[in-house]
Amino acid sequence: MEIGLLYSRIRRDEKLLLSELRDRDHDVHKIDVRKERFGIHDPPEPFVGLDLLFDRCISTSRSLYVTKFCAAYDLPVVNGPVTAETCADKVKNSLALAEAGVPTPKTEVAFTKEAALESIESFGYPCVIKPVIGSWGRLMAKIDTRTAAEAILEHKATLGHYEHKVFYIQEFVEKPGRDIRVVAADGEPIAAMVRSSDHWLTNAAKGATTAPFEPDDRARELVATASEAVGGGLLGIDLMETGDDYTVHEVNHTVEFKALDDTTDVDVPAAVVDWLETVVAEDRTIGAEAK
């Protein structure tokens, strides 16, 4: 197949994908989106004539627009713009999960410091405040006291981009020192791992240690439902164990998998390319239409 890999930075994840695609003799077109110009009618020349465009943009804003343009040009892209839009924004992500009946941490959104403080006080301490757009655990805060809450809100309101004035506040989930990352295609797990840390943040990007994890039936059910809720495609679904169940706190649409590939026996890039081949063979578009 002829596949266009949309990127602005080649991470180890993209290198693994490129290697797998080339090993299978696919014709890979690397497209650096920083160099392209997007008209409202006609696609950039490198986008034309490909079987599939694969969004691997590290920049969320670029990912959102480039997938939107691909859909407008009627070009096949994974993941599609609806999936990207739903996953990129934590508010939309939470709403989609809740609407689908997926257990997800209790969350409130407020637009002023005063209303945000009321949310924080109603959750009690500790609770968590997160940026609505962001990744790798950056700018997340566990709030232990009212004075800390006041300081964080003041900083966000004064120093932040307007998105930081959308206060996304969440209950603190007492997880057992670890969370679970499942990489799934069309809701079917490719591989999974637990990420453990003494720190409350257990992102691999924050240095958490990882170990393979075998999802049970309930985790599989939640992964499938969460995937469908956000528009489907190739996703990184994060769960926390809550004793007798799980809670899904996040779904990522340009999922990184190098840590998972290192941790498990599964050849993750091979499985991803298997899925891409299936998408092309079935002429499917993922997450392009509003639910």
Partner: peptide
Amino acid sequence: APELEEDWGE
């Protein structure tokens, strides 16, 4: 290399 941007991630 470009500086890390706030919207980078997965």
